[in-house]
């Protein structure tokens, strides 16, 4: 796969000689990789491999000990704290524990991501209704999250993550708390979102799940990137690559971490 990638592919994420140490211990060790606009990538590895750490460094909740992370126009080594909020508006993040506001209803849980950007309540109503319909929960917009099932709660979290049309969606074990049937639903939703042009990077320790869907897979173990390959892909690889190459990306032309 790496050999097939040329300069013409626009990347949304570029990672260069990235290391992260916590008290002398490497959580990540010299990672190099790119994620293209509109790509779907699984990040697989056992518990403690560094998956969550890698995602954290991408949404810049923490910064590398060495090396560089580039997301669209945002460069980790030149990042000001005040700019992190602008990056977050271009990245959706979903966790295993759904991290919802349990004192707000479903609508407000999704709307919050638009409140921070200062959208009008008209815009908010329209867009939230649209994504809630997309995740199949529009009819539950006035309910409190605690009354919903785990799968439904995760779908609200996903709706919140994508309501600002992010360039990339990061999902850290999003199905870790869910039944197999619900897991499949959530994954279908993520693929559906990906089809709309949002790149998806999903971390999981469940290799069986990944094999079932087949995608580009990054294998992480002890903080090292061991493999980067396409596994069990059932469609036409060249078609897939073509779609990725044509994708203009959510940051617009001119930004390409891969060519920096």
């Amino acid at each position: 796969m790496t050999a097939e990638r040329g300069e013409e592919i626009r990347n949304i994420i570029g990672i260069y000689h990235l290391s992260k140490r916590y008290n002398e211990k490497f959580a990540l060790d010299d990672i190099n990789l790119h994620v293209a606009n509109g790509e779907f990538v699984f990040l697989v590895g056992p518990s403690g491999a560094g998956k969550s750490t890698l995602l954290k460094l991408i949404y810049m909740d923490d910064f590398p000990t060495e090396g560089q992370v580039i997301v669209g126009p945002f460069v980790s080594t030149q990042m000001k704290r005040s700019k992190v909020s602008l990056l977050r508006r271009k990245i959706g993040v979903v966790f295993q524990s759904f991290r919802l506001l349990y004192d707000r209803d479903v609508f407000e849980n999704v709307a919050i991501a638009m409140r921070v950007t200062g959208e009008s309540s008209y815009e908010i109503k329209k867009k939230v209704a649209q994504v809630l319909t997309q995740v199949g929960l529009y009819h539950k917009r006035n309910e409190m999250p605690s009354t919903l099932s785990g799968g439904e709660q995760q779908r609200i979290a996903i709706a919140r993550a994508v309501v600002n049309s992010p360039a990339v969606l990061l999902a850290d074990e999003p199905t870790g708390n869910l039944d197999p049937e619900v897991t499949e639903e959530i994954l279908k939703l993520l693929f559906h979102i990906n089809a709309g042009g949002t790149a998806v990077l999903m971390a999981t320790h469940d290799l069986a799940l990944v094999k079932q869907f087949g995608q580009r897979i990054l294998f992480l173990r002890d903080g090292r990137l061991q493999e980067d390959k396409i596994l069990g892909y059932k469609g036409d690889l060249s078609q897939r690559l073509e779609r990725i190459q044509k994708d203009p990306g959510r940051f617009g032309p001119g930004w390409n971490p891969g060519t920096k």
Binding site: S82, S85, L101
Partner: peptide, 16 residues
């Protein structure tokens, strides 16, 4: 505290 974490996650500024 939880709300603040979530606000930061979705791109709220410190001022917000």
């Amino acid at each position: 505290k939880e709300t603040i974490e979530i606000l930061k996650l979705v791109g709220a500024t410190n001022r917000f």
